[in-house]
Design a binder for these strands. Structure first.
Lengths: 226, 226
DNA sequence: TCATAAGTGGACGACACCGTCCGTTTGGAT
DNA sequence: ATCCAAACGGACGGTGTCGTCCACTTATGA
């Protein structure tokens, strides 16, 4: 533990540079949460109190910034998976894993978009960590199934499906945590073996006509433009 | 039925104008499906074989274009709801409603984004239709609950939650219909009273490391920018 | 056939974001 | 105290989208 905050916020950097790097990451999370994952780089820079050049020098591409900004959350996910694996009750581990990741997505507003965007190729560095994670997940799933708690036809990819759909929900309704909780509860119940139809969290206040979204032109989109 | 295609494609318009209007709507659906809901207006115009001015004259805002482009799908949703209400078996009606809307979201690629974007305020014109839809939905839900098929603590807003999360999923994985089907099946099962854990459709090919998404800068986002 | 109003298309100015270049400032080692 | 490489910030040219304006074309009714 010789290098302390150095590792998280950049080693071999001059003191001021390291400080700025940290500020940028904080600002990035805030801005991404507020304006979506592709807010102008300049906005992040301004919020961090640095010039654009500094931002670009530290993070050459938006992708690099996004990844760095949410690396901590990604690590949390991995840690939670490890903890889940360590739980003597595999179903409880599985449940906590899912609930915790969803809670993270709900709370860290910019995270869901980053989460979805992070799945793709690139991220070559993390490939190994990912492979490990996938192994762990498979083990957890098998154990929970062997314990008779997780339905036998549950497939590990179902977790990704569930997490991605939850991402979509919290992106559409960033402030309706009731909705998120409901979805999580429903999904967990459908993953269980027995229809242990327990009590659900309270429903969302959502109705077909009252939805807290704006309509202005700029909206969520997909890949390239033209 | 005096005015025929006039109503769908613009009344009181000159013949050529009406034709162009139709072309624009077709082009818009295609472009939105391919490039996301905020592809450049010029792209739509080019694809439709008209000038930008024509596009803007007919649809002053992107929002108007989106709404018009997917009005048909919205109407389909409403029709399906009516059909569901007419089904003697309320649970089957409910199930078909959910499955059909999800199928529509899956097939009409641009539709999910439009669906999410359409919920918000504006749309004042359709408010009445919406209120009607909400009434119908509540009736359907109550009937299905009375029949003992839909769990008693199901809340109408849960349908919106389910649909929105499904939107998120198909937006993230536009080509993985297996994932969509799985989610639909899981949700329907968790809505049922008895844990009639029937067979699920085949799982998605999704894994933690292999995901068919791109990473380039332009990404899904939320409302305003700065 | 003709008159004309409705319709059309592309050029154009305004604007926002991107990412780099460069002159200035500053941390930290001697 | 001095020095310089590292770090900084803002200005700037490039690019792409928006939405309007206007001169030209065409459908339609007399």
């Amino acid at each position: 533990m010789v290098e302390d905050s150095s590792r998280i916020a950049g080693p071999g950097l001059r003191a001021d540079a390291r400080r700025n790097r940290g500020r940028i990451l904080v600002a990035a999370r805030a801005v991404f949460a507020e304006h979506g994952i592709d807010a102008p780089m300049a906005t992040v820079a301004r919020r961090a109190g640095v010039g654009v050049a500094t931002l670009y020098r530290r993070f050459p591409t938006r992708d690099a910034l996004v990844r760095a900004a949410f690396a901590q959350q990604m690590e949390t996910c991995a840690r939670v998976l490890t903890e889940a694996l360590a739980d003597p009750d595999p179903w409880r581990g599985f449940q906590r894993l899912f609930e915790t990741v969803c809670e993270l997505q709900r709370k860290e507003q910019g995270f869901p978009a980053a989460f979805v965007a992070a799945f793709p190729g690139s991220m070559a560095e993390h490939t190994q960590a990912r492979e490990r994670a996938e192994q762990d997940l498979m083990t957890l799933v098998r154990r929970a199934q062997a314990a008779g708690a997780l339905r036998a036809d549950f497939h590990p990819s179902d977790l990704a499906v569930a997490l991605l759909s939850h991402c979509g929900l919290v992106t559409a309704l960033p402030h309706d945590s009731a909705a998120s909780r409901r979805l999580v509860a429903y999904l967990l119940q459908s993953f269980r073996t027995e229809a242990a139809h327990g009590a659900l969290p309270p429903p969302s206040a959502l109705s077909l006509r009252n939805l807290p979204l704006e309509v202005d032109g700029s909206q969520r989109q997909r890949p390239s433009r033209a």
